[in-house]
Design a protein around this nucleic acid. Structure first.
Lengths: 160, 160
DNA sequence: TCGCCTCTTGAGACAAAATCTCAACAAACG
DNA sequence: CGTTTGTTGAGATTTTGTCTCAAGAGGCGA
């Protein structure tokens, strides 16, 4: 049950260190996002909390999700065409995303090689790599097959 | 003036091959996006066309931008927190983006190394790399400095 | 513990971005 | 040239997220 003790401690330190208040809503939101697996959007998070009879408003969810992102306990990303998705972050955890532009499927991956090159590129352009994010978009095998099939008789592009 | 002749030919082939009609609006939109440099959103594109006294509606701009993306002549990406940005694509051209999450600045870069690893990762997960996109988010030097300064006296995190 | 100060919250208005509706229009084709 | 059917335009609608401001509550000193 205390699986997120370190993260919660980090959250409390962050709040106090910044002069922010430790409210019931903030703690409830923390618990909720750390009980969720994978990516979830603000609206779903709100619904999940309402379903548990927790009283919290949409505005508060949005505001405090940004707070969690600021202190590094959550990531906020555009993985699909719709809005932002959030996911909680554990100590030392780091992965990036492969997103299918066809069906929206998200695959997590870890690539030390890319991480290293990414660091080089950031440095070369004067970027700081804190809280960086790397995202690759493409078509998953199913969507690639689906999009190729209906155009099977399409003329071969002679250019390139 | 015929600088985009190959691309326009590709567009016409795409339209005819799919049974789509070659309309004045589609050609005008093609000309507009290929006359623009860098990233531009649908609304700006619409405004630019209106400014040239071209008659076209918002819905048509959105619909046909998607068409251009489908045939590979444009890229549609979320580079900022707001909506989508579009850019035209030339034959063989390929670059990726480094986006500052602080100020929204976008830097284009080319990294053969990352491209290769990206290909490997896609293959490993059954993704097809056509029309792929790679995006790195971070903080540019200015934003990093700005965000570090006000918190200079912040306690050192003892974890990790 | 009490009370004050100020930050935070909630409900709904508001704003921004993109899609949808459907009648009028026009490209393609014979 | 006329028919067929994909396309367009204007505005309503949906979606996603932010803003407003009065009411509520955390934190701190006494």
């Amino acid at each position: 049950m205390m699986a997120n003790a370190r993260e919660k401690e980090q959250f409390l330190q962050y709040l106090r260190g910044r002069g922010h208040r430790v409210t019931g809503e903030r703690l409830a939101l923390f618990d909720e996002i750390f009980s969720q697996h994978g990516h979830i959007d603000a609206e779903e998070l709100l619904a999940a909390m309402k379903a548990r009879s927790l009283k919290i408003s949409r505005a508060t969810v949005y505001r405090n999700l940004d707070l969690l992102v600021e202190c590094g306990l959550a990531r906020k990303q555009r993985l699909g065409s719709r809005g932002f998705l959030y996911e909680h972050v554990h100590f030392g955890q780091q992965h990036d995303h492969l997103v299918c532009t066809g069906c929206g499927r998200v695959v997590e991956f870890v690539s030390p090689g890319i991480a290293a090159l990414q660091g080089e590129i950031c440095r070369a352009h004067g970027f700081v790599t804190t809280r960086h994010t790397l995202q690759i978009s493409g078509l998953c095998n199913l969507c690639a097959a689906a999009s190729a099939a209906p155009q099977a008789r399409r003329e071969v592009q002679t250019h390139v």
